[in-house]
């Protein structure tokens, strides 16, 4: 059992939690992830490690309630327990030796991009962050990101905060203004990572993306998370989750992520009804 040490709502759908896991905190590095299972009936779900503190013995996760498991987790409070919490999994990012990096996050992806920006910054790189959101009310981690970069550019699709437009527009304008990036990191929805990679390919800038395929064990024993990179099949949980954005088959990843879409939608709707009026007793709480 793993204690939830603290909880903070970052916006309507995104929650930050600090989990007591001293052994994981000691080893966790940027780019790695954990797998949690809330209770006996729950699924195993991967979440990227957003931060870790070896002294406090804590691992921070930031997640959006998109499915049943994350929805139920978001309803837990500080002092509650998570049944299983496994990690650190995956390969750590290699973030040494870069001079000028641009870290791009999309929505909740900013939480996952944040530790990479922090590590690049600590390694002495000049770091620009482009943080993209749909609109003002879902902007997260603004102060945290500001503290680990040289320039923070916030974009919103509807222009309600920061600059109006997509992260790709901002990236292009920064490059065209003479910024010489030797690394771009893009983390967010698959289409966003795909289009960022398309932009940087034209400029020949090395680009890393963090992939989010469906996973079960997260240790390389099932291949459920397989992705095609450079024409080869790789397991994201052990070979990644970070890969060269110019080599990833994003279209196949999008298709594979829709594997259980119908079943997930039905379950999510059922979960959302819980606590909303005449609750359906599911026996899963």
């Amino acid at each position: 059992m793993f204690l939830i040490m603290s909880k903070r709502r970052l916006n309507d759908a995104v929650t930050m939690m600090e989990i007591e896991a001293p052994l994981i905190a000691r080893k966790a590095r940027a780019g790695q992830f954990i797998i949690f299972r809330l209770d006996e009936f729950g699924e195993r779900v991967p979440l990227t490690i957003a931060d870790s503190d070896a002294e406090r013995g804590s691992v921070t996760i930031i997640f959006q309630a998109v499915g049943k498991a994350t929805q139920l987790l978001s309803q837990k409070e500080a002092g509650d327990f998570i049944l299983d919490f496994v990690g650190p999994l995956g390969k750590p990012s290699e973030l040494e030796g870069y001079k000028h990096a641009c870290v791009i996050g999309g929505g909740v992806g900013n939480a996952i991009a944040y530790p990479s920006a922090k590590e690049l910054h600590n390694n002495g790189a000049i770091v620009d962050i482009i943080a993209g959101f749909r609109s003002k009310d879902i902007v997260i981690l603004e102060d945290e990101m500001k503290a680990v970069c040289d320039h923070l550019y916030i974009t919103t699709d509807d222009g309600t905060y920061g600059e109006k437009g997509f992260v790709t527009d901002k990236l292009k304008s920064l490059i065209d203004a003479g910024n010489h990036y030797d690394l771009v990191i893009a983390i967010g929805p698959v289409p966003m990572m795909k289009f960022v990679s398309k932009v940087t390919e034209q400029y020949h800038i090395k680009t890393l993306v963090s992939l989010n395929p469906i996973m079960i064990d997260g240790t390389g024993m099932c291949g459920g998370c397989r992705v095609k990179v450079g024409g080869k099949t790789r397991f994201a949980c052990v070979d990644g989750p970070e890969f060269d954005g110019h080599e990833v088959d994003f279209d196949e990843l999008m298709l594979r992520n829709a594997f259980y879409k119908d079943q997930e939608k039905a379950e999510y709707e059922e979960t959302c009804r819980i606590g909303r009026g005449p609750a359906k007793v599911t026996g899963k709480e």
Partner: peptide, 23 residues
């Protein structure tokens, strides 16, 4: 599927039982 994934879903995660969340 790999057989490992299919069997892990069914056996370990009890996907055959509707009370369990794994699809």
């Amino acid at each position: 599927y790999s057989a490992n994934e299919y069997l892990t879903r069914s056996n370990l995660m009890k996907a055959y039982n509707m009370e369990y969340a794994t699809p």
